[in-house]
C-alpha cells in the first residue's frame, strides 16, 4: 500500500521538466503559505504559444509531481488554452491523490497562471 499512485511516484522520481530556463519570457513563483512549499515555473513563448516550460519546486512528492505534470499539459498550448488548465486537470492525470494533497495541484495551477501573467506584463 502506498499513499500515492504510481504516476505520482514516477513523476516524483523522474521529473521530465525539471530545471531553469535561461532568459525566460515569464516566471511564475508561488508559495503555499500553509505548508511552505515553493514552486517556480519558467516559460518561453513563441507565436503566442508555450514553446518551452520548466519548473523548480521545494515541496513534497505531490507538489513535485504536480509541477512536472502541468509542464507537460501546458507545453505547445496557446496562452489562452494554458490559462484554462485547472487543478482538476492535474489531479485527474495524477490518479489517486490524498485529499490533504489537493492543494499541491492548486499551487501548480497558480504558478503557471502567474508565469503567463508575467509574460504578458513584460510584453506590454
Amino acid at each position: 500500500m502506498a499513499i500515492y499512485s504510481k504516476i505520482v511516484i514516477e513523476r516524483f522520481l523522474h521529473p521530465r521538466n525539471l530545471g531553469k530556463i535561461k532568459n525566460p519570457d515569464g516566471v511564475g513563483s508561488t508559495e503555499n503559505i500553509r505548508c511552505g512549499d515553493i514552486m517556480k515555473i519558467y516559460i518561453k513563448v513563441k507565436k503566442n504559444k508555450i514553446k518551452e516550460i520548466k519548473f523548480e519546486t521545494l515541496g513534497c512528492s505531490a507538489a513535485i509531481a504536480s509541477s512536472d505534470l502541468i509542464c507537460d499539459l501546458a507545453k505547445g498550448k496557446s496562452l489562452a488554452e494554458a490559462k484554462k488548465i485547472g487543478y482538476q486537470d492535474i489531479a485527474k492525470k495524477l490518479g489517486k491523490l490524498p485529499l490533504v494533497k489537493m492543494h499541491c495541484t492548486h499551487l501548480a495551477e497558480r504558478a503557471l497562471k502567474i508565469a503567463i501573467e508575467d509574460y504578458l506584463k513584460k510584453k506590454r
Binding site: 511516484i9 500553509r34 511552505g36 515541496g59 513534497c60 507538489a63
Partner: peptide, 20 residues
C-alpha cells in the same frame, strides 16, 4: 515529505516534522 517518500521507495522507513 519528499525525502521520506523517496527513502520509502528504497525500502527505508523514516519520518519528518514537515508540514507536508
Amino acid at each position: 515529505e519528499a525525502m521520506v517518500i523517496a527513502l520509502d521507495q528504497e525500502g527505508i522507513c523514516a519520518s519528518t516534522g514537515s508540514a507536508c
